[in-house]
Every structure is written in C-alpha cells, then in structure tokens.
Design a protein around this nucleic acid. Structure first.
Lengths: 193, 193
DNA sequence: CGCTGGCATTGAACTAGGACAAGAAATGAA
DNA sequence: TTCATTTCTTGTCCTAGTTCAATGCCAGCG
C-alpha cells in the first residue's frame, strides 16, 4: 500500500528506511466518493493529497460563472492548493473535486510540519515537487498562448493518453481553454484525416 | 546593500543574524548591461538571481519563431529557470534577457547547496518562494484563458503599475498573449473612455 | 422497461483578435 | 543635427474560435 507513494517521494531525493517509516506513519488514508467537492472557494486548503486511485480536478470559476480547469490529478499525482494556503493564510481561490471514487494519502499542515521536524530531508523533496508543478504550469501557459486548439488537443492526447477515456470531453475543453463545442469540431476534423 | 535581499528572504521565514551572515557571504554580486542574454535555450541555468536594480524578461520562442514572455522581473524579484534546471538535468527551454542595465545577487547550484548545508532553514524559504511563483503562474494561466485582451491589460496595469512605463508595449503584448497591434488598439479604446 | 438529465454533435451567425501593410513617432548612435 | 532603427498607431481584410440553438445519444434510475 505504501510502495506507490514511497517510490514517488523518493524520485528526486533518496531516503533511508527510517525516514520512510516516519513518512508512512504520518500519512492519513482517506477514501472519497466521486463528485465530492474537497475544497471550496474561500476555504483554507488543509491537505496535500497523493492520489492512490481515482481522478480529481482542480478549477477556478471566472467572473461569468465558467469553470477553468487548472489541473487533473490521477494515480501517483499530488493535488492541493499548495500555492497559497498554509503559507499566506489566504483562502483558496480554487475548487478541488473528485471525478471518480478516490483513495488518497493526505498530509495536513500539522503532520507536514511534524514530518519536516522529524526528518528534515523531506523539505527538499517537497520543494522539488513544487518546482515540477511550476514547470508543468509554465509549459501549459506557453501552450495556451502559442498553440491552436487542434495542436493543444493533440498534445493533450499525447501527454495524458488515458485521461481522454476517463473524463468527459467538456472537462478537457475547459482544461485546454476552448469551448466544448469547438473541441467536438476539432475531434471530428482530426478523425477525418 | 544586503538589506533588500535580506528583507526579501526573511518574508516568510525568520532568520537570526548568524544565518543571514552565512547567506550574505555566499551571494555573488554581478552587474549585467542591458540587452544581454543571460540564459540561452538548451543551456543549463546555472544561477538563481535576485534583482537589486534593473529589469529582466524570461521568454519562450514558439514553433513559428514568436516570443512568449513568461515573466518580467524587476527590483526585489527573483529570476531563474528554477523549474527544470539543476534538478532534472534537463536543459532550459527558455531565454532570460536583461532589458535594462542590471545589478544582481546570484546563487549558483553549488553555493545554494552550501547554504542549505550550513543553514538548513533556507531550504524552507526557497520552497516558499517557489510556491509563490507557482501561485502567480496559475493566476496568469487563469487570466490568459478566461479574460479578454482589455481585461488582461487593465489588470496588468493595476498589478505592475511601473512596468508599463519601463518596457516596450510589444513586450507587454507578448506577456499578455496578444499581438502588439491589438494591444495598441486596446489602448486607444481605453484612452477614449 | 421507459423516462430523465447530462453529454456530444452539428450548423449558422457572429466576434475578438490576428496578419499584413504603410505611415508616424520616438529613440539613439555618430 | 541627421540618419537609421526600432516602436507605436491605424486601417483593411481575414480566420479561429464562440455563442446559441436544435438534435440525437446513452447511462442511470424509478
């Protein structure tokens, strides 16, 4: 059960058995049914969750009530509103919702602090996780600005081959920053080639 | 000379005098003339720079040769391709260029390691810096997708009031993800109100 | 089984913003 | 001061993507 997350956290920093034991002992397991909103706008995000099983989306709602999906998280990904919460004491501007029945390992701000004090090397591992999120988000920004809808969709398929089977088309459209109708047109155009 | 950067690094983590002394002793001062490219595509980013004075831009070049500006950095901001370099051993996909004559304090990967080993609390401060970058980039992604050119420009003026005087319009257009010509039209429309 | 409510598709009309071109204005080097 | 280069503006035409509406689809539920 712990092997997935232990492998993930060890990706850029090597930990010995003692450290991983501390890590595992602080994890909180949680199962969440599908279509559950785990973080509301204006709430403080009180968790950092690792997806053992399932699929989650994180999204903003714009001034006209339209959703913009910032991130999908599936197995072996982390999801949280890490960017503001807990460090700025600013309430979250995003929603986090399960799209499927999910199983998580979670850290609360408190258990994360406990982890860092008991095994400081994890501070580095978490910093690198954030850096990777930053890299992904920067790439996404670049793609959003510089590519056509068709290019963005093809790249999405390449990058997340399984996701297009698991989530509704209109969520993918929202992630790509295009309308659901236009994505449908793009798809029929691609299919005809 | 060190007060600016010491204030900046102490924003979310409190350091004592000893720690700040270690920090200051590891900084490398560097002056760079305007229009200098500090990081080329496919190079490894070997610095993390704090802007004491001046203005810098970080940008991608897309498949058609168009620049997309990811970030401006002015006084008291950090600039680097922190997202990949040094941790993935992947070469940078971005350019970093000075727009004005600049003065920096820099860390190399080595001096940063030395800092973390001598004063581990800095690891946390740097993690929080990355989280703030992530928050800013996420907001930018959301704005890029969900707002009109006019809204984006007005928000830019509000958020970076001095920058619109310091950098060329077409750089701002590139940052906002619109053409320079269209930004000009937006500006005249706004001026007429 | 049939019904209901969310999904996806398709089409027609519309628009925000892009591409191109040409001129005006500002900057800067000599 | 002049010439050159870059930046900014303005106009015209064009297109990628939106909006709105109608239709069909299929999954879950009584």
């Amino acid at each position: 059960m712990y092997s997935q997350i232990n492998k993930n956290i060890s990706r850029y920093v090597t930990f010995d058995a003692d450290e991983l034991e501390i890590f595992d002992s602080l994890l909180q397991y949680k199962a969440v049914p599908k279509k559950t909103i785990m973080l509301q706008i204006d709430e403080m995000c009180s968790f950092e969750a690792f997806v053992i099983k399932g699929c989650v989306r994180k999204y903003y709602i714009d001034a006209n009530g339209f959703e913009v999906i910032l991130q999908f998280a599936i197995e072996n990904a982390w999801i949280s509103d890490i960017s503001f919460s807990n460090y700025e004491d600013k309430p979250s501007r995003v929603y986090i919702e399960t799209l499927e029945d999910c199983k998580f390992f979670m850290f609360s701000p408190e258990t994360k602090e406990e982890l860092f004090s008991k095994a400081p090397k994890f501070e580095r591992a978490f910093r690198i996780l954030v850096q990777r999120s930053l890299a992904v988000t920067q790439d996404r920004l670049f793609n959003t600005i510089s590519k056509t809808a068709t290019e963005k969709y093809l790249e999405f398929l390449e990058h997340y081959p399984t996701l297009s089977q698991r989530v509704a088309q209109h969520y993918i459209a929202s992630y790509l920053g295009i309308s659901a109708e236009f994505l449908s047109k793009v798809r029929t155009k691609i299919a005809k080639l």
